[in-house]
Nucleic acid binder design. Structure first.
Length: 487
RNA sequence: GGUCCUGUGGCCGAGCGGCUAGGCAGAGCUCUGCAAAAGCUUGUACAGCGGUUCGAAUCCGCUCGGGACCUCCA
């Protein structure tokens, strides 16, 4: 297996990836909180990890990919005040909390499927692991690093920080954190201002609540990931991922919980994906600048000129490295859409390429470069640059300006299969179905009639056919090899 | 205020000490009854000022922009 380098947030360097128990790899990614529609920024993170999952699998690892669904316990504020997001939405919509959860979980899966993201190996829910979360909280209390106060269980950050590096992920100083954390009302139960809740006492009106050794309540947000990653991947696993906005609080607390629970830091490699921005600002629900995937597909959004296909959007995201911010704009999306189309057109050309006895191009070197790009912290933009070199070669060969042996043609086909389809998860957006087959037959007939008119130099008829087709958004292209059409 | 990231050609976006990134747009050419499309070729760049170095977009310092986190967020 080739050497793969991964940027590790724990060390802030690129490190060679070494699996704990190769060829098996444990990968945990923080999934969505299902209280409303996922927006495009959320999707970016999951598409990045989908690509990472696909590449690890492609190079031979057996990956167990766990991505949770947060369906309880996520409060409006990390300071452990305010309402549970899902309960709040349920009250507003006059629905059961689990109806909200179901609706947005299904919506999330549908969207990810449109983006051709593979389903994770396990998608555990927070509500399905209440017992496990309580067990971890109990053990942390037993280990002296959490305390119960008036029905709520808090993690004692300052005590933990005496013997452990609480801020490994952010490299911040604890004193500075203490100075900069706001004092909030209703927090009298806490001993330290950085302490966070493992279990929260439920008010009578709270909808989602469970019995516990500390009374009726619900789990804190951070502890669900500790519980589920430990349950399915063990106390120590290979990669933990999530968006960069989770790094400072959620992941920091998760590591602290795991160490307090079993003395072990959960993951060897922490990977963080960067944000999708709109006009330079982070796309987020609270800023009100988020795009829903469906708005993007249909073009039904004030900032959009038109709709874009899921694959064009996926390509758009793959053109940027996962650790860079990606700015969202019509121009950028348009550019990506055209590039994606060219990539797919070239694949068609590749299928009909005529082999030569010798090759003028070095395809195996190009393939090697593609692997080098991916092994360098999953550098998909560089991979794409190499693929466009392949496109140039394919088109030149088709124009008889370059030659390829059958072996090289096969190698190119493999490269497409491996990098474009398997790793980046792009696919051809083919029109299938009876109606489209019928249309193809009709178009064949029309083109045949028009070509007869052209052969008779009856350009009036041929142009009339072309103009009429253009009116119904069918475009005619006359090429050397014959006439093509596209919608 | 603190911590950290970032500033690349008209636009998007790689590179992070010496070698063409790539895409889109623009220009030229090829194909063609015309058109469109497509293909090929191609120009323009590293925020500013200092420093280190034989050599800097790439390292260091300062200045000026932009952003993230410290409050819910992928």
């Amino acid at each position: 297996m080739e050497k793969l380098y991964i940027y590790n947030t724990l060390t802030r360097t690129k490190q060679e990836f070494k699996a704990i128990n190769a060829p098996f790899v444990g990968l945990y990614v923080c999934g969505p909180t299902v209280y409303s529609d996922v927006h495009l920024g959320n999707c970016r993170t999951f598409m990045s990890f989908d690509m990472i999952y696909r590449y690890l699998t492609h190079i031979g690892y057996k990956v167990r990919y766990v991505r949770n669904v947060t369906d309880a316990g996520h409060l409006e504020s990390d300071a452990d005040v305010g309402e549970d997001k899902i309960s709040k939405k349920a009250k507003l919509s006059q629905l059961e909390p689990m109806e909200i959860v179901q609706k947005y979980t299904v919506g999330f899966r549908d969207v990810m499927s449109l983006f051709n993201a593979l389903p994770p190996s396990i998608e555990p829910t927070a509500t399905g692991h209440i017992i496990e979360q309580q067990e971890i909280a109990k053990q942390i209390i037993k280990n002296g690093l959490a305390y119960e106060s008036n029905g709520t269980v808090y993690f004692d950050v300052e005590k933990f920080a005496k013997d452990n590096n609480y801020t490994v992920l952010t490299n911040r100083k604890l004193e500075e954190l203490l100075e900069n954390t706001r004092e909030l009302d209703g927090q009298d139960d806490k001993r330290g201002r950085l302490d966070f809740a493992l279990w929260i006492k439920a008010k009578p009106e709270h909808l989602m609540k469970w019995p516990s050794p500390w009374g009726v309540g619900f789990p804190g947000w951070h502890i669900e990931c500790s519980a589920m990653s430990t349950k399915y991947l063990g106390e120590q696993f290979d990669i933990h991922g999530g968006g960069m906005d989770l790094q400072a609080t959620h992941h920091t607390n998760e590591i602290a919980q795991n160490i307090a629970y079993c003395g072990k830091s959960p993951a060897n490699y922490w990977m963080h994906t960067n944000m999708l921005t709109v006009n330079g600002q982070k796309m987020s629900k609270s800023l009100g600048n988020s795009f829903l995937p469906m708005e993007l597909f249909t073009g039904q959004h004030p900032l959009l000129e038109k709709g874009y296909s899921p694959m064009a959007v996926r390509f758009f995201m793959m053109q940027t490295h996962y650790r860079s911010t990606l700015d969202f704009s019509n121009d950028a999306l348009n550019a990506a859409e055209k590039a994606y189309t060219r990539l797919m057109e070239s694949y068609k050309t590749l299928q009909n390429l005529k082999p030569s006895p010798t090759s003028s191009e070095k395809i195996n070197e190009l393939e090697k470069k593609c692997y080098e790009a991916m092994n360098d912290d999953f550098n998909t933009p560089v991979l794409i640059a190499h693929l466009f070199e392949a496109i140039r070669i394919i088109n030149s060969t088709n124009d008889n300006k370059a030659t390829l042996t059958q072996e090289d043609i096969n190698l190119l086909k493999n490269m497409y299969q491996h990098f474009v389809f398997d790793v980046m998860g792009l696919k051809k957006e083919e029109e299938t179905g009876k109606a489209n087959q019928a249309l193809a037959g009709v178009m064949e007939l029309i083109i045949d009639l028009r070509n007869k008119a052209k052969a008779n130099k009856d350009y009036a008829t041929s142009d009339a056919i072309r103009n009429k087709l253009t009116e119904v958004n069918i475009q005619i292209k006359d090429t050397k090899e014959g006439t093509n059409w596209s919608i």
